[in-house]
């Protein structure tokens, strides 16, 4: 186990800077997920920690030791790649044992270690098979096994589940989480899937355009988003965003007004974020009313797309058992405490 620290980490290709002074502290045994849309710099950050990309500026510390100029093999890390990167010409046994080729261990010790790892990953029966004879999930387990076998201090995962189908992804997500609970190593995991990030991480690091937008627990990211980007990126379906104005001690939005306890300058322009979970279809008069444009039944609940006038549409949640009818006029209720307020720059108003 080890700590990982990034200090003002910069990556530039020529004159183009793609990662701008990243700062991050990963604690011993922590499971941190870097999440963000494509091109946000999460994989680049991971590859720099692995030593596969040169650091343009700043420092990477593993266990308080600067590793900027160390070769990947000297960093005692292991990495699982998106495409598994297991060697098609080698058996599962040889793939798992590949990382031990340069280890100063006896053959018996190496074999014992391979068997141990295979047992942890339930791959003992497949040790003599070639990767082509394995399913996607089993291949991913082999890739994880190869990472585990050297007993590294830090595990790096680069979107390892993105090639799996939805069911297998859920299963592997659980397995990786269990594995972390079992071995307790420090894990830095990269994904663009916010559900993966939310379900697995101790802390998530939300990134955009080479900047960290927020670092916090999944609950903090969901309930206390630092800005509109985080608010919309975390949570599915995405948070509703409505333009609003603070005027006469009341909040005016979408043609409606409501009384909220706020201390803002008069005529402040705001963005109000409301999670679809907090916007409930009800019979009683609510904050908004409108016509249902689209229904998306999800089983336990139904997503309702409601036209609330002025060309604005919001997503609300309704019962899955008794969903409202398409085209019906409905009221939407909201607890003002669940509203998220952002200033004109997109930053959250505390």
């Amino acid at each position: 186990m080890a700590t990982v620290t990034l200090r003002n980490l910069v990556k530039a290709y020529g004159s183009t800077e793609v990662l701008h002074a990243i700062n991050l502290d990963v604690a011993n045994g922590e499971f941190v997920v870097l999440v963000g849309p494509s091109g946000c710099g999460k994989s680049t950050t991971l590859r720099m920690i692995a030593g596969l990309e040169e650091v343009s500026a700043g420092e990477i510390l593993i266990d308080d030791k600067v590793v900027n100029h160390l070769e990947p093999k000297q960093r005692n890390i292991a990495m699982v790649f998106q495409n598994y990167a297991i060697y098609p010409h080698l058996t599962v046994r040889k793939n798992i044992g590949f990382g031990l080729r340069t280890a100063k261990m006896s053959k018996a010790d190496k074999d014992r270690r391979i068997e141990e790892v295979a047992a942890i990953l339930s791959m003992t029966d497949y040790l003599e098979r070639k990767p082509s004879q394995l399913s996607g999930g089993q291949r991913q387990r082999v890739a994880i096994g190869r990472a585990m076998v050297r007993d590294p201090t830090v595990f790096l995962f680069d979107e390892p589940l993105s090639n799996l189908d939805a069911q297998l992804r859920t299963q592997m997500r659980l397995e990786i989480k269990k594995l972390h609970q079992r071995v307790g190593n420090t894990i830095i995991f990269v994904t663009h899937d916010q559900v993966e990030a939310m379900t697995m991480a101790d802390r998530i690091v939300i990134m955009k355009d080479g900047h960290i937008q927020q670092i916090g627990t999944p609950a903090e990211g969901f309930h206390k988003p630092a800005n509109t980007f985080v608010a919309q990126f975390i949570g599915a379906p995405s948070m509703n965003m409505l333009d609003a104005r603070w005027h006469g001690k009341r909040l005016h939005m979408a043609g409606e007004e409501m009384s909220v306890d706020l201390s803002l300058p008069e005529q402040s322009a705001l963005t109000v974020g409301i999670r679809p979970d907090d916007l409930l279809v009800s019979d009683a008069p609510g904050v908004f009313s409108g016509t249902i444009n689209v229904l998306e039944p999800l089983g336990a609940e139904t997503l309702v797309y409601v036209d609330i006038g002025n060309g604005q549409e919001v997503i609300a949640k309704a019962s899955g058992r008794q969903p409202p009818a398409l085209g019906a006029r409905v009221n939407l209720s909201l607890d003002p405490a669940n509203m998220h307020l952002f200033d004109q720059t997109g930053k959250a108003i505390a």
């Binding site: 070769e71 990947p72 093999k73 890390i77 790649f81 990167a85 060697y87 990382g99 080729r101 340069t102």
Partner: peptide, 29 residues
């Protein structure tokens, strides 16, 4: 040959000649 294969071997501690010989060459048989 995907670079991931070579990078995985690099992380596993192989030198560049070993990566060429043990990883890349078998993939272009």
């Amino acid at each position: 040959v995907p670079d991931d294969f070579l990078e995985a071997a690099r992380i596993d501690g192989l030198n560049e000649f070993q990566i060429w010989w043990s990883v890349a060459m078998p993939l272009v048989t």
